[in-house]
Nucleic acid binder design. Structure first.
Length: 109
DNA sequence: CGGCTGACTCTGG
DNA sequence: TCCAGAGCCAGCC
């Protein structure tokens, strides 16, 4: 199975109302890098069963892929799923992150 | 087989 | 916090 297929498989596991980063997906797929994850998403066809909109960058923001339509659409889709953006256009991983990114930084719980 | 492309991430200032 | 530069690898001519 090609690397990108594995990336899509991971992306399909992201539940509604949650988001994951390219880096997180890359860490789940052996031999995958953050770029590959992004490139794999970029290679997705117009019609796909992969929730690509739930995949964003490590900054919790949507990458400016395309002329802007893609990112705008992605934001709309995420908001429709219940995900909220702050005034800086960023998502709070502590609340909408698929995996608890905070546990990697500091496990205080 | 060689070269170009791409929705990223990290580090330093 | 924002900007610039380097590293990386699969896919498609």
């Amino acid at each position: 199975m090609p690397i990108y297929e594995e990336i899509y498989a991971i992306a399909r596991q992201i539940p509604v109302g949650k988001v994951a980063t390219y880096g997180q997906i890359a860490r789940m797929v052996a031999g995958c890098t953050a770029r590959m994850a992004g490139y794999a998403m970029a290679a997705l066809p117009d019609k796909t069963d992969v929730p690509w909109q739930r995949v964003i960058n490590s900054q919790g923001k949507i990458s400016p892929h395309g002329f802007g339509y893609g990112s705008a659409l992605q934001r709309e889709l995420l908001i429709a799923e219940g995900i909220r953006f702050d005034l800086n256009g960023r998502v709070d991983f502590n609340e909408f992150g698929w995996l608890d990114l905070a546990k990697y930084l500091d496990k205080e719980d």
